[in-house]
Design a protein around this nucleic acid. Structure first.
Lengths: 222, 222
DNA sequence: GTCTATACGGCGATAGAC
DNA sequence: GTCTATCGCCGTATAGAC
């Protein structure tokens, strides 16, 4: 509990070995979970001796915390892409679809991210500080970016942009959790476009527009 | 792997001890997770000897599977309440609010359910059959009940009730995951009513109604 | 600073008494 | 059928050689 990161132990530790240990530990923790990961396999995966692992990190828990913190703050923080300054000129349907598809792509193309979320969720009771770091760096990033867009997009007049952003992210993330993480696509198949289309319809389009033309809708056509 | 449930071993096993082992195992697995749970503590929690545990269940994995299956199929299956036949006469706002509040109450009043979900999510990679059982018995139940309502409620004309049901459940469950399971309420406080209100607004109310009266909306007022 | 070798306890699973 | 006692293994963490 004295230290979570190296550099302040006694002498000078090799940064390359530190990186190797973090990399090896990531493989093991993401694959087997926290409790089922042994420091022996971490050392083997990092190609160092077990004593070297313990000279860089005080114990298993310190290594795990340092590792997850790094994943949360660096590796998986930018999953929602960089802020695009031109999105305000694009149609909201396109912006929201891109946002949802980028998030959903991660669940289908990056199995490591699924294991990362499994670890965060599964250990959120025993490592609440890691869960909070995840919320701050991943969830809040998505909320804020989307909420900023909802607030500044001239076509959208939402009564509660903040809550709407949470609804959007929640629907998308939960879909990913059920379909990919919990293997729901095997038993409850559902095309992602139906979720995204319905979400966009609920948030962007007036619900009567495509059913019959009332002749008084000032938004469509112009 | 030969057997997951007792009763077919060799002779006659005590059903009370079986129940005690399942109960003790539930406490241990829900508290410490799968890998960190020892069969010794399961035996102590069940107040039997370890050999008795192994006479009722072949190994740790069989006990875990039998236990989670039972939780999925019995203990936590009815969290969305029994079907109310009178809901079609109630206003959709009330029905949806009750549905959401009932689900969100579980996250705040039943910490065991949070640990149960942590276990399912965290072990979904190593025990995919348990994740699928969770989807079939919990998620699908919520989807179906809500989808049935969306389809039969005369006030609601949704283009894709099935996708809308997933969005509704997803937004609610994800809110519970972030706020309660991941301790997000400590750092991203948000009243649940804002989520529920916004969801109801998006699904039930025509978005233009309360902003300005266009005079050509044939739904509101009659 | 990094390695090999080891201490020591807890783990899952089993044998044998009754 | 349930218990006590035990096996063999692997866990974390450390000591001492270089």
């Amino acid at each position: 509990m004295r230290q979570a990161k190296p550099g302040r132990t006694d002498r000078q530790l090799s940064p390359e070995k530190t990186a190797a240990i973090l990399e090896g530990g990531m493989q093991e923790f993401l694959t087997h979970g926290y409790a089922a990961t042994s420091m022996d396999r971490v050392a083997i995966a990092a190609k160092v001796s077990k004593a070297t692992v313990y000279s860089h990190f005080q114990d298993k828990e310190s290594l795990f915390i340092a590792l997850i913190q790094r994943l949360v703050e660096q590796r998986f923080q930018s999953i929602f892409g960089t802020a695009d300054e031109q999105i305000l000129q694009m149609p909201p349907q396109v912006v929201l679809r891109n946002f949802a598809n980028r998030a959903l792509d991660i669940g289908t193309t990056e199995p490591q991210f699924l294991n990362f979320m499994r670890l965060i969720l599964g250990e959120s009771g025993r490592f609440p500080q890691l869960a909070r770091a995840f919320v701050r760096n991943i969830e809040q990033t998505a909320f804020r970016r989307l909420c900023h867009y909802f607030t500044h997009c001239p076509q959208l007049k939402l009564s509660d942009p903040e809550a709407t952003a949470r609804i959007f992210v929640g629907a998308v993330v939960h879909f990913m959790i059920v379909q990919e993480m919990l293997h729901g696509k095997d038993i409850l198949p559902m095309e992602r476009d139906r979720i995204v289309d319905s979400l966009i319809d609920l948030i962007v389009e007036p619900p009567l527009t495509d059913k019959f033309d009332t002749g008084c809708n000032t938004v469509s056509g112009g």
